[in-house]
Amino acid sequence: MTEKPSHTVGGQSNRTWKKPPFISNPVVRYSLMAGIAVYLYWAFSSLPFDWARIAEGLPRAGRIFGGAIPPNFERSDLLMKGFKESFQIAFLATLLGVSLSVPIAVMAAKNVAPKPIYLLGRSLIIVSRSFHPVIVAILFVAAVGFGPFAGILTLTLYSIGFVAKLLAEEIEEIDWGQVEAMKSVGAGYFKTLIYGVFPQVLPRQIGLSMYQLDSNLRASAVVGIVGAGGIGGTLMNAFGRYDYDFAFAILLLIIGIILVSEGISGWVRKKIW
């Protein structure tokens, strides 16, 4: 409580301060930094860059964008057909995927499924999640041939992987009291599910379905690239034939439709919540 200290500042030996480093152990710190540097060098030097081809890239990019502007919407029948098919694929795959995901989610929820069933449900989900939809699509195309059917199968699997996983997590977090109440009035397993479990997860399920419809629409544009139907195939063809103005038109429409669908799906989810 005295004034003294303020006069003795200058007399005190200078104390230094440095910001404590992000990682306090210097060995770990420096080896981490060295490791990152070595990795970056290794990665860059091991990758096969075709520099001659890349050097042509900028003028080529100029040609491509020059050819793409203005976008060409003249072949609207082809556009319509492609987008219509994408919608159909997305819609049917969402319906199938969401309906199948309900039993699978029940199987994969620890609190309502017996252990062996639970493991089966989990592994179904893991299998349907393990591959990128494009890889799944290419396999289905190989198995069942080109066209929207392969697309529907792909996106159904994709929907199961996502919706069933989140729905199972939701079921695992329900209020158990409601289930006990249904059991205590003498309801059987399925009646308990319908009265004690489903009402609790229904809003979530509708939200997930809307979300999945939106992401299936996005994905349907992509699986077409490997031959599973929809606008993606049209886009791939346009690129293959150097029809950059048509390709650009498709791209713009894809972006527009994705934005609209994102908006609608967000709006519906907000209303239901």
Partner: peptide
Amino acid sequence: SDIDRAFH
């Protein structure tokens, strides 16, 4: 000087 002031 700032560091000294801070410690003080």
